[in-house]
Design a protein around this nucleic acid. Sequence first.
DNA 1: CGCTCCACCTGAACGC
DNA 2: TGCGTTCAGGTGGAGC
Length: 275
Amino acid sequence: MPELPEVETVRRGLLPVLEGAVLHDVMVHRRDLRRPIPEDLEDRTRGKTIIRLDRRSKYLLFTLDTQDVIVIHLGMSGRMRIETGNPPPRDKHDHVEFVTAHHQWVRFGDPRRFGFIDLLSPKDIATYDPFTRLGRDPFDPTLKADDLYQQAQRRRISLKAFLMDQSILAGLGNIYVNEVLFRSRLDPRRPANQLTYHDCARLLPEIQTVLREAIDAGGSSLKDHRQANGELGYFQHSFQVYGREDTLCPACEKTPIRRIVQQNRATFFCSNCQT
DNA sequence: CGCTCCACCTGAACGC
DNA sequence: TGCGTTCAGGTGGAGC
């Protein structure tokens, strides 16, 4: 589920419930996620106020009035659900619950437990490992096509692997990489160091457009930023190639979309349009 | 350092 | 119905 646009949609959905909210209670039902949930999470967050909700790449950040920061990563199957008032019994995969003073419940569920929750002191943020390995934000206004070009020049990996590498650009995942490369008409198998500056100048705006459209779609399809069931971050995308193996390419309308495997992940592309 | 592979974990979808 | 196989939107450690 969660690439950058989905995490941003979750953030926006949580905003009206959690921004400025006092954490009346924090309950952890299972600590062994990808990394163990810190032992002191409950004690250091209960009774505190969330003063800001941010997103960095695919990470959610809740800044408390103590300046401590709750870091949440949704992994592959993580989700946030809002319940109001008297909530139904939690699912067996709801590992953490945040309860606000206004009786709103925010439940973090994650069946596969690839996600995690951390708690950072202000002094730890700069050296926090997941953050130090993150590359540029795709929407960074100072990010230029030439920056991509310079990075690509010194990589021999495929274009697919290049865009998946979070230490170069932070936020794209398997779905949007496929969509971006299709719209840029670039072959995912091409070595990154074969890219011309002109290719990069085409690539960067497509990256931003695809992410922007996905975020906008998430925001607009969520009435008051959440679905009736409280589930956040889910909305209908219209993918042009992802998951569309053997269907006709929507651009040339004569070549079927191919599915190959790169870095153990599925890649979908049109071998006619993408070169 | 650059790169590829694979483990981490559960559930859904599909074939027989 | 049941059982086995395959696949899933992420990350980061091992090993070349």
